[in-house]
Amino acid sequence: MRKILVLILLFSFKNLISQETKCLNSDFYNPNSEIVRIKNTSESIEKIIQSKLRIDSLKLYILKNTYVEFPKWSGYRRKGIDSGFKIILLNSSTNDFEFLIKGNKIDIKRQVFYKNEWKNLTPLKKSTIMICGTGYFKKGIIKTKDFFTFLAPCIEGELKVKSRFVFGNTIYSNEFEGLIDERFIEK
Protein backbone atom coordinates (compact mmCIF):
# COMPACT_ATOMS: atom_id res chain seq x y z
CA MET A 1 0.00 0.00 0.00
CA ARG A 2 2.84 2.35 0.87
CA LYS A 3 4.50 1.69 -2.52
CA ILE A 4 1.28 2.49 -4.36
CA LEU A 5 0.95 5.78 -2.47
CA VAL A 6 4.53 6.73 -3.37
CA LEU A 7 3.89 5.91 -7.05
CA ILE A 8 0.71 8.00 -7.08
CA LEU A 9 2.58 10.94 -5.58
CA LEU A 10 5.40 10.59 -8.10
CA PHE A 11 3.01 10.51 -11.06
CA SER A 12 1.03 13.48 -9.79
CA PHE A 13 4.20 15.55 -9.44
CA LYS A 14 5.88 14.26 -12.58
CA ASN A 15 5.89 17.71 -14.18
CA LEU A 16 7.79 19.17 -11.27
CA ILE A 17 10.32 16.35 -11.24
CA SER A 18 10.86 15.95 -15.00
CA GLN A 19 11.03 19.61 -15.97
CA GLU A 20 14.63 20.53 -16.74
CA THR A 21 14.18 24.27 -16.46
CA LYS A 22 11.35 26.61 -15.67
CA CYS A 23 10.22 28.69 -18.64
CA LEU A 24 9.15 32.31 -18.49
CA ASN A 25 5.42 32.92 -18.25
CA SER A 26 4.41 34.66 -21.48
CA ASP A 27 2.71 37.45 -19.48
CA PHE A 28 6.18 38.56 -18.33
CA TYR A 29 7.92 38.21 -21.69
CA ASN A 30 9.22 41.37 -23.35
CA PRO A 31 11.05 40.78 -26.64
CA ASN A 32 12.69 44.21 -26.36
CA SER A 33 14.65 43.25 -23.24
CA GLU A 34 14.99 39.51 -23.50
CA ILE A 35 18.69 38.72 -23.28
CA VAL A 36 21.08 39.24 -20.37
CA ARG A 37 24.82 39.64 -20.90
CA ILE A 38 26.95 37.56 -18.54
CA LYS A 39 30.66 37.14 -17.94
CA ASN A 40 32.49 35.17 -20.64
CA THR A 41 33.71 31.73 -19.67
CA SER A 42 36.04 29.47 -21.60
CA GLU A 43 33.52 26.60 -21.67
CA SER A 44 31.09 28.92 -23.50
CA ILE A 45 33.33 29.02 -26.51
CA GLU A 46 34.70 25.45 -26.66
CA LYS A 47 31.71 23.99 -28.54
CA ILE A 48 31.75 26.83 -31.05
CA ILE A 49 35.46 26.52 -31.74
CA GLN A 50 34.93 22.80 -32.40
CA SER A 51 32.19 23.56 -34.95
CA LYS A 52 32.95 24.71 -38.47
CA LEU A 53 32.82 28.50 -38.39
CA ARG A 54 33.62 30.67 -41.34
CA ILE A 55 36.83 32.51 -40.57
CA ASP A 56 36.75 36.29 -40.68
CA SER A 57 33.13 36.74 -39.68
CA LEU A 58 30.87 37.85 -36.87
CA LYS A 59 28.75 34.90 -35.74
CA LEU A 60 25.78 34.55 -33.41
CA TYR A 61 25.50 31.04 -32.02
CA ILE A 62 22.93 29.35 -29.76
CA LEU A 63 24.24 26.61 -27.49
CA LYS A 64 21.21 24.32 -27.48
CA ASN A 65 20.27 22.55 -24.25
CA THR A 66 22.97 24.39 -22.31
CA TYR A 67 21.26 26.06 -19.37
CA VAL A 68 23.14 28.39 -17.06
CA GLU A 69 21.94 30.26 -13.98
CA PHE A 70 20.92 33.88 -14.46
CA PRO A 71 22.95 36.30 -12.33
CA LYS A 72 21.38 37.23 -8.99
CA TRP A 73 20.76 40.79 -10.24
CA SER A 74 18.75 39.57 -13.25
CA GLY A 75 15.07 40.47 -13.38
CA TYR A 76 14.32 36.90 -14.46
CA ARG A 77 15.32 35.64 -11.00
CA ARG A 78 12.58 37.81 -9.46
CA LYS A 79 10.12 36.18 -11.88
CA GLY A 80 11.08 32.69 -10.71
CA ILE A 81 13.29 31.84 -13.70
CA ASP A 82 16.67 30.66 -12.51
CA SER A 83 18.37 29.65 -15.77
CA GLY A 84 18.53 30.38 -19.49
CA PHE A 85 20.31 29.05 -22.56
CA LYS A 86 23.56 30.52 -23.84
CA ILE A 87 23.92 32.81 -26.84
CA ILE A 88 27.44 33.57 -28.04
CA LEU A 89 28.38 36.53 -30.24
CA LEU A 90 31.81 35.67 -31.65
CA ASN A 91 34.09 37.94 -33.65
CA SER A 92 36.38 35.59 -35.57
CA SER A 93 37.44 38.34 -37.95
CA THR A 94 40.74 40.21 -38.02
CA ASN A 95 39.00 43.53 -37.23
CA ASP A 96 37.24 44.94 -34.19
CA PHE A 97 33.48 45.31 -34.67
CA GLU A 98 31.61 48.44 -33.50
CA PHE A 99 27.88 48.55 -32.83
CA LEU A 100 25.31 50.75 -31.11
CA ILE A 101 24.07 49.97 -27.60
CA LYS A 102 20.63 51.40 -26.81
CA GLY A 103 19.78 51.83 -23.14
CA ASN A 104 22.38 49.24 -22.06
CA LYS A 105 20.83 46.66 -24.43
CA ILE A 106 22.46 45.06 -27.45
CA ASP A 107 20.10 44.68 -30.41
CA ILE A 108 19.64 40.90 -30.40
CA LYS A 109 16.07 39.74 -30.96
CA ARG A 110 14.28 36.40 -31.20
CA GLN A 111 12.47 35.49 -34.43
CA VAL A 112 10.17 32.57 -35.19
CA PHE A 113 9.41 30.75 -38.43
CA TYR A 114 5.66 31.14 -38.83
CA LYS A 115 3.51 30.60 -41.95
CA ASN A 116 6.59 30.06 -44.14
CA GLU A 117 8.45 33.23 -43.13
CA TRP A 118 10.61 34.58 -40.32
CA LYS A 119 8.67 36.90 -38.01
CA ASN A 120 9.82 39.22 -35.24
CA LEU A 121 8.21 39.04 -31.84
CA THR A 122 6.40 42.06 -30.44
CA PRO A 123 5.55 42.92 -26.83
CA LEU A 124 1.95 42.47 -25.68
CA LYS A 125 2.09 45.74 -23.76
CA LYS A 126 3.85 48.96 -24.66
CA SER A 127 6.56 49.69 -22.13
CA THR A 128 7.44 53.22 -21.17
CA ILE A 129 11.16 53.58 -20.65
CA MET A 130 12.28 56.82 -19.10
CA ILE A 131 15.22 58.36 -20.90
CA CYS A 132 17.29 60.89 -18.98
CA GLY A 133 19.22 62.04 -22.07
CA THR A 134 22.67 60.84 -21.03
CA GLY A 135 24.21 57.55 -21.98
CA TYR A 136 21.14 56.12 -23.69
CA PHE A 137 23.05 55.48 -26.92
CA LYS A 138 26.67 54.43 -26.75
CA LYS A 139 29.20 52.60 -28.86
CA GLY A 140 30.03 48.97 -28.13
CA ILE A 141 33.08 47.14 -29.40
CA ILE A 142 33.72 43.43 -29.72
CA LYS A 143 37.44 42.99 -30.24
CA THR A 144 38.91 40.68 -32.84
CA LYS A 145 38.94 37.02 -31.74
CA ASP A 146 36.73 37.89 -28.74
CA PHE A 147 33.17 36.94 -27.81
CA PHE A 148 30.23 38.04 -25.67
CA THR A 149 28.04 35.60 -23.76
CA PHE A 150 24.31 36.18 -23.20
CA LEU A 151 21.47 34.23 -21.63
CA ALA A 152 17.87 34.05 -22.83
CA PRO A 153 14.96 32.29 -21.14
CA CYS A 154 12.79 29.63 -22.67
CA ILE A 155 9.22 30.92 -22.99
CA GLU A 156 5.95 29.25 -22.11
CA GLY A 157 3.57 28.84 -25.03
CA GLU A 158 1.36 26.46 -26.91
CA LEU A 159 2.81 26.88 -30.40
CA LYS A 160 5.92 24.82 -31.25
CA VAL A 161 8.10 26.83 -33.61
CA LYS A 162 11.53 26.98 -35.16
CA SER A 163 13.35 29.99 -33.65
CA ARG A 164 16.55 31.95 -34.10
CA PHE A 165 18.13 35.17 -32.87
CA VAL A 166 19.21 38.06 -35.06
CA PHE A 167 21.87 40.67 -34.25
CA GLY A 168 21.13 43.97 -35.93
CA ASN A 169 19.36 42.97 -39.13
CA THR A 170 22.06 40.91 -40.79
CA ILE A 171 23.63 38.34 -38.46
CA TYR A 172 21.47 35.28 -37.76
CA SER A 173 22.03 32.50 -35.26
CA ASN A 174 21.61 28.81 -35.79
CA GLU A 175 18.01 27.60 -35.46
CA PHE A 176 16.45 25.85 -32.47
CA GLU A 177 13.00 24.59 -31.53
CA GLY A 178 10.92 26.15 -28.81
CA LEU A 179 7.47 27.18 -27.73
CA ILE A 180 5.88 30.61 -28.07
CA ASP A 181 2.60 32.31 -27.32
CA GLU A 182 1.14 33.13 -30.74
CA ARG A 183 0.12 36.61 -29.53
CA PHE A 184 3.81 37.70 -29.70
CA ILE A 185 4.18 37.02 -33.43
CA GLU A 186 4.30 40.21 -35.47
CA LYS A 187 1.31 40.44 -37.79
Rank of each mutant, 00 (worst) to 15 (best):
L10F: 06
R37S: 13
I155S: 00
K143R: 12
L7T: 11
I45E: 02
Y136V: 13
L179T: 11
K64N: 15
K126Q: 08
K126N: 09
F150P: 03
S18V: 05
I171S: 11
K126R: 07
F97N: 13
T66M: 08
R54C: 13
V112D: 02
K119V: 04
I38M: 06
E69S: 14
K52E: 14
A152R: 04
T94N: 15
L124K: 13
K52A: 12
S74E: 10
S42H: 10
W73F: 03
E117W: 07
I45W: 04
I171Y: 13
S26L: 02
F184K: 01
K126H: 06
L5A: 07
F13S: 15
G80D: 06
I35H: 00
G103E: 06
V161H: 06
L53P: 04
G135D: 05
F13M: 15
N32S: 12
S44G: 13
I49W: 08
L159N: 14
T144K: 15
N40M: 09
I4N: 12
S12L: 12
S93P: 07
V166Y: 03
R78H: 15
E46I: 14
D27M: 15
I55T: 15
E177G: 12
K115C: 00
V6E: 06
G168C: 03
I55E: 15
Y76A: 02
K86G: 07
F28P: 01
N169V: 07
L5K: 02
I62H: 11
K125H: 02
P71T: 00
N25A: 08
F99N: 08
S163T: 08
I45Q: 02
E43K: 15
N32I: 08
K22R: 05
C23K: 15
E98D: 07
K109E: 07
F13Y: 14
N104Q: 09
Q111V: 09
K59Q: 15
S33L: 14
N95Q: 13
K125T: 07
Y67P: 01
L63A: 14
S92L: 09
R110Y: 00
K86P: 08
F147H: 09
R37D: 04
D107K: 03
F167L: 00
V6M: 08
R78Y: 13
S26P: 00
E43Q: 14
E20Q: 12
S173Q: 08
R183C: 02
N65I: 02
L58W: 08
T149A: 12
F184I: 04
F11I: 11
I88S: 00
I141Q: 11
N169T: 13
F184A: 04
P153H: 08
D56Q: 13
C154W: 01
L24M: 11
L5G: 06
T170G: 12
K115P: 00
K52R: 14
T144Y: 11
L60F: 04
D96Y: 03
E156M: 00
K72C: 03
